[in-house]
Design a protein around this nucleic acid. Sequence first.
DNA 1: AAATATATTACGATTTTTGTATTTTATTAT
DNA 2: ATAATAAAATACAAAAATCGTAATATATTT
Lengths: 197, 197
Amino acid sequence: MNTNSQKYSDILSTAKELFWKHGIRRVSIEEVCREANVSKMTFYRFFSNKAELGREVIDKIIDESIEKYREIMSRDISFEEKMKEQLLLKFEGTREISAEFINDIFSNEKLGLKEHWLKRADEFSHEVRQDLSVAQKQGIIRKDLKLDFVFYLNNKAAEIFSDPKLLEIYTSMQELIMEYANLVFYGIFPRNSNETK
Amino acid sequence: MNTNSQKYSDILSTAKELFWKHGIRRVSIEEVCREANVSKMTFYRFFSNKAELGREVIDKIIDESIEKYREIMSRDISFEEKMKEQLLLKFEGTREISAEFINDIFSNEKLGLKEHWLKRADEFSHEVRQDLSVAQKQGIIRKDLKLDFVFYLNNKAAEIFSDPKLLEIYTSMQELIMEYANLVFYGIFPRNSNETK
DNA sequence: AAATATATTACGATTTTTGTATTTTATTAT
DNA sequence: ATAATAAAATACAAAAATCGTAATATATTT
């Protein structure tokens, strides 16, 4: 399967856009083809069905996130500044994301994307965990904080976010995600009376 | 048909919300029922099909607009201030509206809502036209402006707005609508060197 | 010129959606 | 309390949309 074909990436980026905006359930394969200017046959040359397309869209999203994450971590700035940048990145990256998309990933049994998302997100998590672990040893992060706890929360986060009850409190999914990200990042640093022990 | 029943207005306001967000095509009747906590049978007691529901949602939207418009016009403030308020109102009223909704009204042949929207919008237009006509006679609006031209534009506006090409220039449908509204309102007043003739 | 990729069209299978009917359960009015 | 009405729940046939594949035609590339 020629994964670096033009048509392939047309389909993938079109699907990402449509899924991002409307969720997966509301978007049909034929709609993706139409928007990507690709015939249905061409679609099926690359993807066997909608669930696989969904998985690859998830891959694309996480791959791009990892890439951007690494770029920031490789910069020659302080750890705290890096974290601030990551926050900004998360803000940009979640712009206009729909609750429908999150929901289809975590609650649509038929698609079965939850496991895939968790698996890929966990890989990403692992990398971040290494970086935070180093920072903790250097005293940049509170030493009495169990990083495992933060990552447990992180894994549960997206799932929790698909609860409409929670979303009602916010005007957008992005706002909710940022609230969480802010909480984690700014709750992580030792402040004022918080001794490094 | 008991049009002031609780169930009836539950269905209508739920449909308005869902249509507003996702457009009409992407939302099924059963989804509306589920969200409104109403059985399908109850739905069909009030509406004969989706197109009729669409028409009544349009009615609801325009009725509410007219009501708010009148409230502002009845205030004891200057005409220019009233126009500013109307602009603000339009900004609030179009918040988060989706391109899909506009599109389904104007380009979805199957639903045939375009005519209904134009008819109802025209009634509203007529009322606004009377108010502007009075203001023009008083010299508050440029006397050499043909109001007919403004209203012709207005009638075409929503239709034009459903062109994705145009929408690409803006980040949201609301931004596009506000751009237009600003243009019309602030192009209407005599300024600096513009004599009242 | 041959091989490959893609579009077009068609089509059966499946799934979703629609609209109605029937039965059961609440609610309201008398 | 009882009858009348409204609504929910369930079931279901008909229609429409969507899916996935096949066959053929048309570009594109090798």
